[in-house]
Design a protein around this nucleic acid. Structure first.
Lengths: 344, 344
DNA sequence: TTGTACGCGTTATCAT
DNA sequence: ATGATAACGCGTACAA
């Protein structure tokens, strides 16, 4: 069981512990020759420093945690890649962590701050209704990236945020559908008590209808239930299947995520109907998958790469005290592809 | 910066450190009243034990690491869920970690063993060509789950494994295509120096052709290049686009992953052709996405849930010393859906 | 049942 | 440039 420690290496090299430590951590005060010698033996014996001990002792760990909400959330994978690059570029380490929909991301963050001596945190996706009290315990700067509703009760000075205007972009999408002749538009949305992007996207839908004097039909509003896997293929499928079974008339279906939109498409195909001939279908997010689907999905593209880059930038600006916390809203882009058409 | 420690809690409660420790870790030797009192103050002040310190001290941490190869690998997400349940059921903690395609999973594992005092490791997906020497340093039991080529040089007694017979199942798929009249079958496969599932699936393809006296046409073999994101939508698209541009005649395209198959479909649609009328298309994996695609993908379904369960079971059997290392191969299932058809 | 004291493996501080 | 030693926060053997 005898795992090797820094002591063993020190003995083998005939030097003191601190010298080995210096070699490992690239400290300046060390003879290049001894350093090379030590590194050679480290390599030879495959010694690996114990991270727990390091974190325990270290004052500053130069690491940033990225907490992603929803494990299979494919939407974030390209963002994570960009963030990793940005973080590495600045000689920091990225600690990636997935948080389930039913877990509390702030609790996880609190844990990690203690364990890893984080320099900062990036929260990616999900809701965000946490008490100010709890957030204050997070003694490191953090930024909320692509999170719908920043906590209104918490001072905006306490964190940075990056997002699109979900309400507005959703409004754009629905307005565009209306302009293309659609009057009866079903929406596949989040549970009605949602307080995050789900609510905002629904709000945009409602506003677009209202401004165009289209009466709101509750039958066309199809919220996910809590039991469904949120924003998933299957939830989109089930919701649309029920919509069709209920015999609700509509010419377009608007899903608040691309994954749900694909599920919706399948349900429509399975019922023997065509897209966009019988139903127009729109999604939200602008995922790669939507572009590869057949028919290619009309959707709202969030500029994920730019947003990821900006997220890292904001965080590091706060870290280097060059800047205070900021809140940036990115414009999204309506991408019209094959799954929608003009009617009448 | 004064983060709270166990000492502070002890002082506040007017008890010793060890008593607090006992309360936290549910030790038996403690007065229920003092325990309740301590827990109350812990909650009140939001004290969180430092995990680094705990890991440093603890001999056995009751945690299992799951190392997943390829961050956006959607194929594994359902397996991970099952594994988490199984691990929690046995009062262990799951530590999930993603490993990039260019990272060395054993190095990561070595790190984690030191840092987290792991009880065991599950490697999920990817290649596996590691030196026996390195694997021996991994002093904890591990199981290779859905990994193509277990290291032949390393004694099978040193680890457990769970997989399907990739060569055989691939052979089944291609044989079925041949039985349905396809003679010229293109394969979208891994780089030719691949030594893992990629190679095995290609081997199955080659054997099926050979047994049916179909000449192997190198033009029909389309390996991913190293620069492509492996097994991705885009790689499937690019490979198929090149195939079509090269004017290679074929009636079926067989992609060694569902994601690549979907990319291939898109390339065919974009060229103005239809599936399955002009080309039959087959995938591999049996992902949810393949079922939701339009047309629904013909594919090889790996019994992921059962395999995940078996993975956990094998590991815990070794941990409890009820059993030695085993190697289980699961049968996969040919799922015929809409993307393929009989010709001639 | 409870408290004291030591050590886990490392880094930081201070000598040398 | 290098080495000894004191923390870091916690679990646990042992004493009380």
């Amino acid at each position: 069981m005898g795992e090797m420690t820094i002591k063993d290496i020190a003995k083998m090299c005939g030097v003191g512990i601190s010298t080995v430590s210096r070699a490992i951590n690239n400290h300046p005060d060390i003879n290049p020759e001894t350093k090379a010698m030590i590194n050679a033996t480290i390599k030879e014996y495959g010694y690996i420093p114990n991270n727990s001990a390091r974190n325990l002792k270290r004052t500053e760990a130069k690491s940033i945690a990225v907490l992603v909400k929803g494990i299979s959330n494919i939407f974030f994978s390209s963002m994570i890649k960009v963030m990793e690059e940005e973080i590495k570029k600045r000689k920091y380490t990225m600690v990636l962590h997935h948080v389930e929909f039913n877990e509390d991301e702030v609790d996880v963050a609190l844990q990690l701050v203690k364990e890893k001596r984080l320099a900062g945190i990036i929260f990616l996706g999900g809701y965000f209704h946490h008490s100010e009290e709890k957030l204050k315990k997070l003694h490191v700067p953090f930024v909320l990236s692509t999170i719908g509703c920043p906590p209104e009760n918490f001072s905006k000075k306490g964190y940075s945020s990056i997002s699109v205007d979900d309400e507005l972009e959703s409004y754009h999408m629905v307005t565009w559908l209306i302009k293309n002749g659609h009057q009866r538009i079903a929406i596949l949305c989040a549970a009605l008590d949602d307080e995050s992007i789900g609510k905002l996207r629904l709000d945009g839908y409602l506003r677009a209808l209202k401004e165009n004097q289209i009466e709101i039909d509750q039958q066309l509003i199809r919220p996910m239930s809590k039991e469904m896997e949120q924003y998933s293929l299957q939830s989109g499928y089930t919701l649309t299947q029920q919509l069709l079974e209920d015999g609700i008339k509509c010419s377009a279906v608007y899903a608040i995520s691309d994954m749900m939109a694909i599920g919706a498409c399948k349900a429509i195909f399975d019922s023997g109907k065509q897209i966009p001939e019988d139903y127009s279908l729109a999604g939200f997010d602008g995922t790669e998958l939507g572009a590869f689907y057949h028919p290619a999905l009309t959707t709202v593209r969030q500029p994920v790469e730019e947003m990821a880059q900006a997220t890292a930038k904001l965080l590091f600006e706060v870290l280097s005290e060059k800047s205070i916390h900021k809140h940036r809203i990115f414009p999204a882009e309506l991408i019209i592809r094959e799954s929608t058409r003009k009617i009448k």
